[in-house]
């Protein structure tokens, strides 16, 4: 295996509240290498955006953090990926418990074909919570947190599929919150939504970051600039995917990137 030191190790921003960390992380799908020596630290109670062109490995990196890549056959991971300083790829790790701590929201809203209420209590029930009063409280609490309560409080028994796209996505976020995660991974959470629904989700993210650690993959650079505190730029050069080019505070990345490749990408000088 080719080993090159990631030059970004030297220039990582100083963070004193690291929630997630990768060190020299490599990911292979069969022989294809999707991530190359990625080293970065993601702070807690902040929004970290991963940006870059299609196929550069953004989603692969995101899916490392809750081991979603495990579901793809012939996947191999090397390097350290840590949550609160503990390697999540160790054998002793319970993946179900990990995914409870590290929730995920996907590109397309994917509510279960059941009522709004049942969508939310599904997770808590799986984790053994059955007390109706307790479940009611969870439903109200997470619907309020996801800014959906006022819109659905009178129709909790209606099918979630009847909600609008933006409401469905906020329901999916509420569903993640219901299992009390610490980290929320968002993979293009707004790409299927209209602009107003997108702004609502962004507002919601800014509120949620007070309590959770959020990592978002987005193609929309303006969205990354608007919502995130930290930004990581990945790219692919030729057939080499999965290189982390630059990582820093969002204010720096979008006003004064250090690497010319970041500059060229975010100013649209190459696509």
């Amino acid at each position: 295996m080719e080993v090159t030191l990631n030059k970004n190790i030297e220039s990582l921003p100083y963070l004193d509240n690291v929630k997630l960390r990768t060190r020299m992380a490599n990911l292979y799908y069969n022989k294809f290498q999707a991530l190359r020596n990625v080293t970065l630290e993601i702070p807690s109670h902040a929004i970290t955006a991963i940006i870059g062109p299609s196929g550069c490995g953004k989603s692969s990196l995101l899916r490392l953090f809750n081991r979603m890549n495990d579901l793809i056959p012939n996947t191999r991971v090397t390097g350290d990926i840590e949550l609160d300083g503990k390697n999540i790829y160790e054998k002793s790790i319970d993946v179900v418990d990990l995914r409870k701590r590290v929730g995920m929201v996907f590109q397309k809203p994917n509510p279960f074909p059941m009522s709004i209420y049942d969508n939310i209590v599904f997770g808590p029930k799986q984790h053994g919570r059955t007390n109706r009063n307790e479940l009611n409280k969870i439903v109200e609490n997470v619907l309020r947190k996801s800014a959906l309560w006022d819109e659905v409080k009178d129709k909790l028994e209606q099918s979630a599929l009847a909600l609008s796209g933006g409401q469905q996505q906020r329901l999916c976020i509420a569903r993640v919150l219901a299992v009390e995660p610490e980290v929320i991974l968002m993979d293009e959470p707004c790409s299927a939504l209209d602009p107003v629904a997108t702004l609502k989700i962004e507002d919601l993210m800014r509120t949620l970051r007070e309590i959770y650690t959020i990592v978002i993959v987005t193609h929309n650079m303006q969205q990354a600039a608007r919502v995130s505190d930290m930004a990581a730029f990945m790219m692919m050069a030729g057939d080499r995917a999965g290189e982390l080019v630059e990582y820093g505070h969002t204010s720096q990345i979008f006003t004064n990137p250090r690497d010319k490749r970041t500059e060229d990408y975010i100013t649209g000088r190459f696509g």
Binding site: M221, F254, T267
Partner: peptide, 9 residues
Amino acid sequence: QQPMASDLR
């Protein structure tokens, strides 16, 4: 155009 980086500067 939402200019960024050196364009914004």
